[in-house]
Design a protein around this nucleic acid. Structure first.
Lengths: 121, 121
DNA sequence: GTCATTGTCAACCGTCTGGTTGATAACGCT
DNA sequence: AGCGTTATCAACCAGACGGTTGACAATGAC
């Protein structure tokens, strides 16, 4: 295995990059639904929606429970955690760095007359 | 315009679906860097990395300031907010619904002796 | 001016993606 | 058993994606 979390994130971000799939997620957040119900509002074949659901499923964002010939689709929020944690981590780092930059600029303002060029960092 | 936020999210999620680009973001969270510096660790041409940076830029995740012939790349955390807000909204909805389901199951457990089959919901 | 450095642009290539249509499977109903 | 409903599978297609190589633009250094 190359890295399970990496592949999970690949699939999850890719899944949510499609607006139709984000809309599916949005609707499934409100209530479970069958593929047929989900397909209703879009000008798109049932097969296309079925494929979208499959992508969401492989990304772990959704589970399908087999119930007769219907397969109600249910949103599984767990992978969302993984995504928000990844995003938040780097957002926070970047913000902290931004604030450190502010501090540096403040210090530079104090020792303003320093025109030597030897700090390459 | 079809919907600016939608397109923004399309680009942002798609950008982060690639592990190389997530790694770029991770490194840029620590410090700004030039395309050349960024390209170092990967077994990949400079042009390929340049393309990745371009994708990140068009997703609004990164800005490039022109400074001589170098173009230091800087992480812009703002779009991250949009993504986390989107994710968190539906995660929360789904969780609330999950808890309502629990409540329903509790009520069903109370009226347990009811063996009539007519509630189809 | 000439040269080295840094990076982008353009064309190409194989693969993945998002859609289509047609056939088929699985189940409930009568 | 036969039919209708629900959904998946398979083949196909156009376009996007991630990489390559080669040419070129822009700037700093000599």
């Amino acid at each position: 295995m190359v890295d399970e979390v990496t592949e999970q994130l690949n699939r999850a971000f890719a899944a949510l990059a499609d607006p139709t799939r984000r809309d599916l997620v949005a609707r499934l957040a409100g209530a479970d639904a069958t593929v047929g119900e989900l397909a209703q509002p879009y000008g798109m074949s049932l097969q296309a929606v079925s494929k979208h659901v499959k992508v969401l499923e492989e990304a772990g964002l959704v589970v399908r429970s087999k119930e007769a010939q219907r397969r109600p689709v249910h949103l599984d929020a767990e992978v969302f955690d993984l995504m928000t944690k990844w995003i938040e981590r780097y957002r926070r780092e970047a913000e902290q760095r931004y604030q450190r930059l502010d501090a540096v600029l403040d210090r530079m303002a104090v020792s303003e007359g320093d025109t030597s060029e030897d700090q390459t960092s």
